[in-house]
Amino acid sequence: MDAVDRTIINALQGDFPVSENPFADTAASLEMDEATLIARIDAMVSDGVLSRFGPLFDADAMGGAVTLCALEVPEADFDAIAEIVNSYPEVAHNYERQHQFNMWFVVAAESRDIVDEVLLDIQGRTGLIVHDMPKQDEFFIGLRLEV
């Protein structure tokens, strides 16, 4: 990652345009050419510096339901349980965390009913209590990372 990559990351965490030629528009404002911008983003996605490039959707605004869940997983079963949890397309993120509650995952679906089904299913297949912690209020979202 060099200065050009850093410029792209710092400048493009939100304002990519919806236009005919969005890369050309963006490249002009960053004083680089379009092909370079596309190639750099492509390389950063391939290298894993970027998780992806594109729109970030708000599942709530889509009319869907999202929740954060915690599990207390016995260490010996950790990988097997992770495999079960990750197998659901509704599970968007899953993190191991250092705590008694050591597995934290986000479930998102079109409706709360579907979320409930997934949680029940996970509970049934893992034999573990799924602690369901849907957000009740949102105070801020949108960190800008400086690199």
Partner: peptide, 10 residues
């Protein structure tokens, strides 16, 4: 519905 469009850093 779209919060933003751009890079999603790791």
């Amino acid at each position: 519905i779209i919060r933003r469009i751009g890079v999603v850093p790791n």
